[in-house]
């Protein structure tokens, strides 16, 4: 599939915005910024072809509060386990069959799960997501299903 000009333009706008943040909006650097953003867009197209929308990033702000909360409780959970003298962990592996398409959506789910309490993704095997759990006694599968629904909202149809 050929590259979509709209997606290339979106990526260019994102890289240009990054440049503006890095240079604090300095005007005399703009020609360099335009060249750098163009080069970054070309590189990103080489690494991840700009042929279709994969994730709807404009939906990201909607799930951000829940994500930040999950990240906070993930940190608290692992801190409490590490600091208690008895160290209550029961590490083990859980396989999870995700309905999300392979590739970027599944990687996004794995990334999110790796910041949530108790789970760490290690890629897939035979289509199942491999999850390392700090406590295999906890109900991992149902909390993973909740996160999966959240990521589903980000995946373009």
């Amino acid at each position: 599939m050929p590259a979509s000009p709209l997606i290339l333009a979106k990526r260019f706008a994102l890289f240009a915005a990054l440049w503006l943040v890095l240079t604090a909006g300095a005007l005399d650097g703009l020609p360099f910024g335009a060249a750098a953003a163009a080069a970054a867009t070309w590189t990103s197209h080489r690494l991840l072809p700009a042929d279709r929308d994969r994730l709807r990033l404009h939906r990201l702000p909607a799930i951000l509060p829940r994500f930040l909360w999950g990240s906070l409780s993930g940190g608290l959970d692992v801190a409490a386990r590490a600091l208690r003298p008895r160290m209550p962990i029961r590490p083990g592996w859980v396989r999870y069959r995700s309905a999300l398409p392979a590739g970027l959506p599944l990687v996004a789910l794995g990334g999110e799960l790796s910041l949530m309490p108790g789970t760490l993704a290690a890629g897939t095997r035979e289509g199942d997501l491999l999850l390392h759990c700090l406590d295999v006694g906890a109900d991992v599968v149902s909390s993973v299903a909740v996160e999966e629904q959240r990521i589903r909202g980000l995946v373009a149809p």
């Binding site: 990240s71 940190g75 692992v78 590490a82 760490l120």
Partner: peptide, 9 residues
């Protein structure tokens, strides 16, 4: 787990 969750938080 410890590295990813706690230190980045």
């Amino acid at each position: 787990h410890a590295l990813t969750k706690a230190d980045n938080l």
